[in-house]
């Protein structure tokens, strides 16, 4: 039998009948080789345990948040007026009313944000990946990096300085949308960029070789191929801004009424509704409303995610 199997056996001290290559030291080498097997197995187990532990640790806050919010907020969602009413003439310690004003407001504001940010973001990414060369592209890429690091409250202050201080306009839902645009653009640019880079160059060449102009290639081949990935990126952006509160504090003061006009006056949103009731947590009615609004916000993001995934699925590259 081979010397290797013998020295791996339980009788580790047994001398092999042929001297392994390397002469006298060979036995030691074999013994050392024996060890790494066990060491590797131990390392494997340790790594597995650490990994699962880290995973569990990461899941704790998520599960905790979800269970808390669901437990405390779910009965509000079943109340008669939650999906239809607003908070008009309802004081902090009154029960009743609904969140429809804030749901509509949040959707409208984020819708406006998406409408502005998505074309800008996607076109920027297309420029960076398909056209941009040299200094300008590097400068833009750098700016996007900076933009993605801007604290949301600073974005809010900036828009306040532009819209209210410089142009003398009133605070409004639209002003808040503009601040959210600043937060959403870098998310969309970065994710779209990654998706466009994943489109194989062979597809572009195939299209050019058919005598298709570059812009048609970009629109009909490149963007089309990356479409489902781009949708995912847009969703990330929407999720990022939907719960954003700081710019709203500055730009879109809360109202308990229905207010569908984005351009004039106070504007109701779910984060601001949460913020409103947060101050009166001692009152059961306010606490209830706050958790209800929190759960509604989570559900809204979830719903948009599901819709986006369905859309992406039906447009995904078919295998």
């Amino acid at each position: 039998m081979s010397t290797v199997t013998e020295s791996r056996g339980p009788a580790d001290g047994v001398t092999p009948d042929t001297t392994p290559p390397g002469g006298k030291g060979g036995r030691d080498v074999l013994r050392e080789m024996d060890n790494p097997h066990r060491v590797r197995a131990v390392k494997d187990v340790v790594a597995k345990v650490v990994m699962w532990f880290a995973f569990a640790l990461a899941m704790i806050p998520l599960v905790w948040i979800l269970t808390t919010v669901v437990a405390k907020g779910v009965h509000m969602l079943g109340s008669a007026t939650w999906w239809t009413g607003n908070q008009r003439n309802i004081n902090s310690d009154d029960f009743g009313g609904g969140a429809r004003h804030a749901i509509e407001g949040t959707l409208e504001m984020v819708g406006m944000t998406t409408l502005i940010a998505v074309p800008i973001g996607i076109m920027t990414a297309v420029y960076l990946v398909e056209y941009g060369r040299g200094g300008l592209a590097r400068a833009i890429s750098f700016m996007v990096d900076i933009l993605s690091g801007i604290p949301s409250i600073v974005a809010g202050l900036f828009i306040y300085a532009v819209v209210v201080t410089t142009f003398g306009l009133r605070q409004s839902g639209f002003a808040a949308s503009l601040a959210l645009v600043l937060l959403m653009i870098p998310v969309i640019v970065r994710s779209t960029e990654e998706m466009l880079k994943l489109v194989p160059n062979e597809l572009r060449e195939a299209s050019y070789a058919l005598g298709v102009p570059k812009w048609v290639t970009v629109v009909k081949v490149v963007l089309r191929t990356a479409f489902s990935g781009i949708i995912t990126g847009v969703l990330l952006g929407v999720a990022r801004v939907m719960g954003e509160t700081a710019p709203l504090l500055i730009l879109a003061p809360y109202t308990k009424n229905f207010q569908r006009d984005l351009f004039n006056g106070n504007f109701p949103t779910l984060p601001m509704m949460i913020n409103q009731d947060r101050g009166d947590l001692a009152l059961p009615a306010a606490a209830e409303r706050m958790w209800g609004a929190a759960l509604t916000l989570i559900l809204l993001v979830l719903l948009l995610n599901v819709i986006g995934r369905v859309v992406a699925h039906f447009n995904a590259v078919k295998k």
Partner: peptide, 17 residues
């Protein structure tokens, strides 16, 4: 030019979508 002179590549590259 490319409408007049077509090209087939090394690796088959049908449009995946």
């Amino acid at each position: 030019v490319r409408r007049t002179v077509g090209m087939v590549f090394q690796r088959p590259n049908p449009f995946p979508t």
